[in-house]
Design a protein around this nucleic acid. Sequence first.
DNA 1: GTGCCCGTATTAGTCGGACAAATAGACGTG
DNA 2: CACGTCTATTTGTCCGACTAATACGGGCAC
Lengths: 254, 254
Amino acid sequence: MAPEKKTRTGGDRRIGKPVRSPARIHGVIAHDLGVAIVSGQYKPGEILQNEIDFSERLEVSRSAYREAIRILAAKGLVESRPKTGTRVNPEARWNLLDPDVLAWSFETEPSPALVKGLFELRLIIEPAAAALAAQRRSPEQVTRMREALMAMERHGLNTEEGKGADREFHATILEATDNPPLLSLASTIGAGVRWTTVYKERKKELPRDPMPDHWKVFDAIASGGPEAARAAMTELVEMALHDTARALQQRPRA
Amino acid sequence: MAPEKKTRTGGDRRIGKPVRSPARIHGVIAHDLGVAIVSGQYKPGEILQNEIDFSERLEVSRSAYREAIRILAAKGLVESRPKTGTRVNPEARWNLLDPDVLAWSFETEPSPALVKGLFELRLIIEPAAAALAAQRRSPEQVTRMREALMAMERHGLNTEEGKGADREFHATILEATDNPPLLSLASTIGAGVRWTTVYKERKKELPRDPMPDHWKVFDAIASGGPEAARAAMTELVEMALHDTARALQQRPRA
DNA sequence: GTGCCCGTATTAGTCGGACAAATAGACGTG
DNA sequence: CACGTCTATTTGTCCGACTAATACGGGCAC
């Protein structure tokens, strides 16, 4: 089952992006298998067929396949042992906060529980981060935030540039907290931010212009007001959560 | 440089623990190299010597070495490209929230910035998590929390069992939020919890009995009081942060 | 019948050695 | 001096053999 298209090289490099590395095979396999796992195609507890057969089916060498498995194991998705084989781990052991795992989760329709959880996490993290950022941000970071918001206004949230600027704004806030673990959450938050706009686009009519809220957060951070920043960010994320929740219950089924 | 002791098999399985798998070589290499990187032995931007030489120096096959590198790359610690070699990534790209990376960071003396950041993160996450847990916890989870606290009292925080029960208590709270991404943070929080006791032990006199604070959190969660739970947890973590901060400034130098 | 021990088949793990592909940097050319 | 090309180096991929761990089952003692 799962014919596993033989893309091999080529076809994977997303257009318009710089393309760091031209898709090494082990990376492609890890990606495809990773997506298959997080999307439930292989269920927790399930055992993958043995390395030799599977690698033959994928038409790659056993070495390349094994390296792919090592990647997945490093992210907590699988675990392999002699004699037993390679088994899909229970979801609780997946490193959901890993940028790749998160990206893979969003490549197919993510589970509502994940989206809901992600927004709750945003609601916890981002207001606190905004408050810290208001106390610690550097002038250079303020500049980058301002430019990000201006780019958002210029391009709009329908364009890829606009969405990227939105994520850049939120990421810079996390960076301004000067807290390494918080910065590591940037990709997680970014995934949440990305999906805010996705859900907004689904229900065509955009419910409210997000820019005033963003500027309010920016002003508070720039002027060094932690509590104002916290309040403004809370409002921003709550609005996003509200919109998303409505969009979600509109589409319980795909 | 870095003679890289030839432990090979044996010696790595920590006594007293079940030992899932008897230390596969690629795992050992990944562990040793990972620790060397997070401890600054290899600095960001630095390029590791080529695969053939390095694997020979470690006395392992190139395949095993490559699998180790794949693991490190999956966790954002390194990136390898043809011709350039394998380069240590800037710290901002490390997946600090990855359980392994975090554990490696704490195997040698972690940087004060990391410890401080971790406690700040606890102060953000845990009160909010406690509030959610108070609303969503199952009876079974309440039982597990109670048993964890009783185990803490029985064994004391000087014993390994007591510390494990402490982490179990905090992990169960996260589990009770019914939020997958929050649950993924359990190992991160656990690392912070573990180091609270480490710092307490350093300054021999324990500054204050932590049990009453823990029970207050438990009572609030068990009785379904979100705001009481949030307040109690805030107090608990602030106390821990305070103690740790003092211990840290006592020992700026190792 | 029951429980334990040990053998064996199966699977991942390790090895080494060859060849392919990408590419940074040197080199030549206009 | 700019720009394309060539080359050496490094990772990437493949293959096939052997090793090591271990789940399972069959036989043995009780």
